[in-house]
Design a protein around this nucleic acid. Structure first.
Lengths: 247, 247
DNA sequence: CGAACCCTTGACAGAAATCAACTAAGGTGG
DNA sequence: CCACCTTAGTTGATTTCTGTCAAGGGTTCG
């Protein structure tokens, strides 16, 4: 594993405050690997063996049940995923696959558990990470239960604009079929919804989004801090669909 | 606060393994109170001030957005709620109200944060608690996104049966309108769905559920460990709708 | 006894999934 | 380099599901 990768990982909230010796212990047993696009990294139901950290590329977390599939989150660099399963030594609730060529660091779960028992600062970081991840999923569930699909799409578009620095125009970070799945709807429905939103101040050209009338779009989305952020929850891991990564 | 309450709380996973001195420090600033039915304990958006622990009665965690409301979980004794908000010192994402007369212990959030920084065993307990809560919400979200409402109802009925020791007949732990909201549907829809499930091996008489043909019901529900349990996730806090409490 | 409230049922409207067909873009292999 | 194939995206027609509105029965609690 390259030294500059150590540095990148070290900057993660999760690893920022731990003892250098603890960090080195983790990195000692960690392995970095490249994967091609579309590679399945973990499979739901398998025992948790490694904490995964995305260095390059992007990873989709998805869940399957009886022929149906839904994407739960997308992790961009530098972010970790499936921390909770590793901690509980329980089967993964989600599968993960690369969205493009990716570079991933894997830290053995037993080492992880050993280190946060020895290093209180790291334990605190893990606590904060998990609390943030929990809150992120609660937000996601709130959106699904309280908003219609139209409202979810509108607020997603606004959120992405905010994450791009309130830019009036930006590019969707993921393809539309994946976005549809994340938002809990079919691709057909997303397509129609986006078209209909043209009447509400937003225009799409491929993946390029242009917010023509922010107020009108906001009137549809009715954004809410307790669903859309912007708390610094979800420092990374499986949070929401994050902004385009600064790889 | 009564000494026997200390004992009950001490048995919680969250507090079981901590130092006696840490526990006493927490209990020193903790206060127990009785509340009438329907009392709002916390309101979403308010800053997190207290970790709440249910000693008697039951508490509904619900979320609101623009005139719409949905119940996210029900907490029975002895269980805690809104740990994550306290830890992040962030606004509550959910509101909480008593479902009946209840007795609640409240632990100031700053004390909580101070103690898990000093007591590594407690930090580990918090980690496990949060990881479990996270996994519980992920399961909930998976159910919402992957199953139809009919399937959610059927699997809920089977899950409750399992929690009652695979009893063929049991009583729903909550009223139906609340159950409907938890399952992400309207009361009218739940009513119709339950009626229709009579053809699939389950009969209701008021809140009394009788599973006539478990296999037939399972064919509808297609229960899945990765959605329905029975992992020992969600030791308490806002997990799912738990079994009738042993008050 | 009356007033809420829960639950149910029916009729209807609206939203979303499904099925099908077609276009366009990207990648592959000859 | 081009023909081909695969796949994302769109659009339309249709069906299924779900929410909404309205009304009535039953229960509980003041």
């Amino acid at each position: 594993m390259r030294p500059e990768e150590h540095q990148e990982i070290r900057h993660l909230h999760l690893f920022r405050d731990m003892l250098q010796s603890s960090f080195e212990a983790l990195m000692h047993s960690a392995r970095a690997e490249r994967y091609p696009a579309g590679r399945e990294l973990i499979r739901q139901g398998d025992p948790a063996d490694f904490l995964h950290i995305v260095i390059e590329g992007a990873v989709e977390l998805y869940a399957r049940w009886e022929e149906r599939e839904t994407t739960m989150a997308v992790v961009h660099p530098v972010g970790s995923f499936i921390l909770a399963a590793c901690i509980r030594d329980a089967p993964y609730l989600m599968s993960a696959r690369t969205l493009g060529p990716a570079r991933i660091v894997r830290v053995p779960a037993p080492d992880l558990r050993a280190v946060f028992r020895r290093d209180p600062e790291f334990a605190v970081s893990v606590i904060n990470e998990l609390a943030g991840a929990y809150r992120a999923v609660v937000r996601h569930a709130k959106g699904l239960k309280l908003r219609t699909s139209r409202e979810r799409v509108a607020s997603y578009l606004l959120r992405q604009s905010r994450l791009a620095g309130n830019a009036p125009t930006y590019v969707l970070p993921v393809e539309k079929r994946l976005l549809a799945s994340y938002l809990g709807m079919t691709p057909e429905n997303l397509s129609r919804t986006l078209k209909a939103l043209a009447a509400d101040g937003v225009v799409l050209d491929g993946l390029r989004v242009t917010i023509v009338d922010r107020d009108r779009l906001a009137a549809v989305a009715r954004p809410d801090r307790l669903i859309d952020g912007p708390d610094p929850d979800a420092t990374n891991a499986g949070a929401s669909l994050p902004p385009p990564a600064s790889a």
